[in-house]
């Protein structure tokens, strides 16, 4: 609403959902701005890697550095990147490759364990 910037449609392959992303804003920012979900959101600055995606169709422009710890040069050649660091240059389709893992409460948060005894 009241945003007249030129936009292109970005489609998330796994869910079939799509959203309009402005030229010049990142794929992740476009999703965040609309309050939409689908691509995991982390640092939004190219360092943490949770918004890793594979561009299946269409092309992107680079907006900033992507951590090599999360996207190797080889992966980059295969179309992997971080959604916070690239913007769309045309309509595109992507696949979410990053994920949030459950760290220290994995496997335990669903259990009805009694509170720990404090020694």
């Amino acid at each position: 609403m009241f945003d007249f910037r030129p936009k292109v449609q970005v489609t998330i392959d796994q869910t079939g959902e799509s959203y309009p992303c402005a030229i010049g804003e990142s794929l992740l920012q476009g999703m965040l701005r609309l309050g939409r979900k689908g691509i995991p959101v982390g640092c939004v600055n190219g360092g943490c890697g949770v918004c890793k995606v594979k561009i299946l169709a269409g092309s992107t422009e680079t907006l900033g550095p992507v951590s090599r710890a999360h996207v190797t040069a080889e992966e980059e050649g295969q179309g992997y990147t971080l959604a916070c660091r690239v913007g769309p240059s045309c309509e595109l389709r992507l696949e979410v490759a990053g994920k949030m893992s459950k760290p220290f409460f994995k496997g335990y948060d669903a259990q009805a364990t009694p509170p720990a005894t404090i020694k």
Binding site: G42, C43, G47, C48, V50, M100, P103, F105, T113, P115
Partner: peptide
Amino acid sequence: TTWTEDKLWSGIFYHTGEATPSFTDVYT
């Protein structure tokens, strides 16, 4: 001071006591 599993998120964010997954899952 000990925080138990059922009150974990109150320990982390006292006001809401609710999970913010990015807080525990995002790091460098």
